[in-house]
Design a protein around this nucleic acid. Structure first.
Length: 561
RNA sequence: GGGCUCGUGGCGCAGCUAGGUAGCGCAGCAGGCUUUUAACCUGAUGGCCGCGGGUUCGAAUCCCGCCGAGCCCGCCA
């Protein structure tokens, strides 16, 4: 802040904040609610991809800031498991014909461990909440309906069918041409905002994606509270009292009804819903005119993509939270979600995880003042860093093993064993951060990072990232070794047989030995790397040789002599 | 048809809201660390800031138009 220019109180209102979180908080606080309910929701047509965490994290930071401001608040996660099956991802073994049109909450779990197909997919996701630092209350849409909590909302909607029709015509048909508009108006004449789960066949609709015929209510009598319907799936038709039927509101109506029932103050919405005149806006209109409520604060956000493609379950590119956790820290994911503006698409590139982890580590060290940063950036870092964590900010910096070092080292586990590797990593940490002792917190993180780095190298790394130590020296490598090389190797064996040296001493010995036999030092390194890992360069040799152990290296060298 | 976002050195991005010397990370290059590197440090190279107008003393930044890339909505959810 420059002190010489004075900003009046009025003008300061128009100052831009350093981050969207602050603007968002302000907008939400304007509601002056007794309790702020920040809701999120997801349809459950299969495994939930990590992209959905953008919504949960946005909701979570709103909650965190509200709590900080001393407000009462909760976040919700509404699992829309009452939606009927329209299609299955290719990996699913269930028969689509059998379950089409049945709610996901009534389709069995093919793995047999959860209550239903919907519950399985949802539970799998919920399990990762603590690691990603979110803690919403889980609301099952199926239970919301089955427990009767939605029934009054449904009744209100049926009684206001005419108003809802008007709203839909206004919003949906806004940009239609005359012919489309005429069709739409015609179709809305006998339209009702809810559908019936047929008491005879249990379906809410017939036909798969593209050719859906919904078992829509065909009439409602507000005096008798009876609804009539005709099932397109089995042909059953009837007129039954509303509270004796299982009825579900249409999507565009279901959403505002949930806002009403759950008293939602704020809800982030992906761009598919938040498009101008889209389902969110329609919902707000319904909130106002049908439920007499203001409706939640809309928080539009763009999608998270992976490698330039959308994460869709149907395409089979499911990048699940579990996969993320197997290669990168959850804090990094939060960081990536919180840094860019909400309206910006985020494209994840798994192959760039090492760089991104490095960046986050640097960001963290900057927070702790271990790295320089311009003061104007510090405000943002102080705001953002705590929001990236899944727990409390530690008082002291917990040193992290460099990810790129972990990539190489973790792949040595096969030949060295985990214990040796851990010891080596602790040494590196001590050296890098100038420590005498490593805290237990830091120690705990080492194996986690090693595992992630190894998995990353295997699953997403290029050939360059994969370091292998073959069981024996390959034939083609043998052929490249000259007599002069053997002279060097023989002499170097004497070094290895001698007293144990530290990394740097051993490093120097490579040079000394090379010179002693009149070999170019460059060649000495190439030869050793070839024998060890079949390529001409690799990790810093002194440390690497010690990592492998003199005994092992001696045996290896002897095998080519 | 309606809407959103993006277009800045090889790649990924910041800067744009309050116009004034074009920055960062990664890769690449050169050098250093008693000579290795995928660690670390230093340095140099590299950009008509998509194109064309306008406003201005001055535009990556503001305004208008265009081009290109991508996505969403438009039946259901």
């Amino acid at each position: 802040m420059t002190g010489d220019h004075c900003v009046s109180d009025e003008a300061s209102e128009f100052e831009y904040s350093i981050h969207w979180i602050n603007d968002l908080l302000e907008r939400v606080l304007e509601r002056e609610a007794d309790e702020y309910i920040v809701s999120t929701g997801k349809s459950i047509s299969g495994s939930i991809p990590i992209s959905f965490y953008r919504e949960l994290i946005i909701a979570d930071v709103i909650k965190r800031k509200l709590l900080e401001a001393g407000k009462k608040t909760r976040t919700l996660f509404v699992a829309d498991d009452y939606d009927p099956v329209r299609s299955f991802p290719s990996s699913v073994s269930l028969s689509l014909d059998e379950w089409l049109g049945i709610p996901y909450s009534k389709v069995p779990d093919e793995f047999g461990c959860c209550e239903s197909f919907g519950a399985h997919a949802t539970n799998e996701f919920i399990k990762t909440f603590p690691e990603f630092g979110v803690s919403p209350e889980v609301v099952w849409q199926s239970k919301l309906y089955e427990s009767g909590k939605m029934q009054e909302a449904t009744r209100i909607c049926l009684r206001n069918t005419e108003t809802i029709r008007e709203i839909l015509i206004e919003y949906v048909a806004r940009d239609f041409n005359d012919a489309q508009k005429a069709d739409y108006l015609e179709s809305m004449k006998n339209w009702f905002p809810a559908s019936v789960f047929c008491p005879s066949c249990g379906r809410i609709q017939a036909g798969a994606k593209g050719e859906i015929v919904v078992n829509r209510i065909t009439g409602y009598d507000p005096v008798t509270d009876k609804v009539s319907f005709s099932c397109p799936s089995c042909g059953h038709s009837d007129e039954v009292s509303l509270n004796e039927l299982q009825v579900k509101l249409s999507w565009r109506i279901d959403w505002p009804a949930k806002w009403f029932v759950l008293n939602v103050t704020c809800e982030p919405a992906g761009k598919d819903h938040s498009v101008k005149g889209g389902s969110f806006d329609t919902g707000l209109e319904i909130s106002r005119r049908v439920f007499g409520m203001e409706g939640p604060v809309k928080v539009p956000f763009e999608w998270v993509r992976i490698g330039g493609r959308d994460m869709s379950t149907s395409e089979g590119i499911v990048f699940s939270p579990k996969v993320w956790l197997s290669i990168a820290p959850p804090e990094l994911y939060r960081y990536l979600m919180l840094t860019p503006p909400l309206e910006r698409a985020i494209d994840l590139h798994p192959e760039r995880i090492p760089d991104m982890v490095d960046e986050f580590d640097r960001f963290e060290r900057t927070f702790y003042g271990l790295e320089d940063a311009p003061e104007e950036k510090m405000d943002l870092i102080r705001l953002l860093y705590p929001l990236c964590l899944n727990g409390e900010v530690s008082e002291k910096y917990v040193p992290k093993l460099p990810y790129k070092f972990a990539i190489i080292t973790s792949q040595m586990e096969g030949i060295l064993g985990f214990t040796t590797i851990l010891e080596r990593c602790e040494q590196v940490l001590k050296k890098q951060f100038g420590l005498n002792e490593i805290s237990t917190e830091a120690k705990k993180l080492i194996p986690i990072r090693l595992n992630r780095a190894r998995t990353w190298a295997q699953e997403f790394g290029s050939d360059r990232d994969k370091v292998e130590v073959p069981d024996s020296v390959r034939e083609e490598i043998m052929d490249t070794i000259t007599d002069n090389d053997r002279k060097f190797l023989t002499k170097f064996c004497e070094v290895l047989k001698g007293e144990s040296l530290d990394d740097e001493e051993l490093q120097s010995k490579v040079f000394e030995t090379a010179r002693a036999v009149g070999m170019k030092d460059k060649r000495a390194f190439v030869v050793l790397y070839r024998i060890l890992i079949s390529r001409k360069s690799g990790p810093r040799l002194g440390g690497f040789l010690n990592l492998l152990g003199n005994e092992w290296v001696l045996k290896r060298i002897n095998s080519v002599l």
